[in-house]
């Protein structure tokens, strides 16, 4: 449990610890995932913290939920926090991306013998293999990904996503 907490904080803080080396990529993006490592969909922030020529490293974190009210209709949301770190190579407008990460899930359900309500907090591993299209210096991107999930470190699931991003253009970017 301690190890998984360390991994979680490592991924969470990595983008803020490392500094960007230059500005050939747009650093900050908001991304909407349909499917993906946040389950059925998630809203994400991505920050590129290292880039050199046509290579970048980024951290991406987001939030997703299945429902606000639990099965007893009490406000008690199911929450998912997808986090990953990814590296990418760019050729013109095309990007090949590889990433690893964790999905933290907090789901309200019935207990194993169905006699009470319980919130299960857990972590799952994920992998991202993706193609992104984004013109150099332009804010909009679209990405298609294969996202195998290793749910609760016990079950493998083939999964995928389509995402749409908006990168914030900085004045000193070329």
């Amino acid at each position: 449990m301690l190890a998984s907490k360390k991994i979680f904080f490592f991924f969470l803080l990595l983008p803020f610890i490392l500094k960007s080396q230059n500005n050939t990529f747009l650093k900050h993006s908001i991304i909407i995932d349909i499917g993906g490592i946040g389950g059925y969909g998630s809203l994400n922030y991505e920050r590129i913290f290292f880039s050199q020529k046509d290579f970048f490293l980024s951290g991406k974190t987001g939030v997703s939920f299945y429902r606000f009210k639990d099965f007893e209709r009490k406000i008690n949301p199911d929450l998912l926090f997808p986090i990953n770190i990814q590296g990418g190579l760019r050729y013109k407008s095309h990007h090949a991306i590889l990433g690893i990460g964790q999905t933290i899930s907090s789901i309200v359900k019935a207990s194993n013998n169905f006699n009470s309500k319980t919130r299960r907090n857990s972590m799952s591993a994920n992998l991202t293999i993706a193609y992104r299209f984004q013109k150099k210096g332009k804010p909009y991107s679209v990405q298609i990904s294969y996202n195998p999930l290793f749910e609760h470190y016990t079950r493998f699931r083939n999964w995928g996503s389509l995402n749409f991003g908006y990168s914030f253009v900085e004045k000193n970017n070329s």
Binding site: S105, I107, K109, N112, N113, F114, N115, L149, R157
Partner: peptide, 17 residues
Amino acid sequence: PPFAEYRILSLNQLFKN
């Protein structure tokens, strides 16, 4: 849905709980 792990229920468990 992914990550949720809902389980199959018996009729006995349904009426009990």
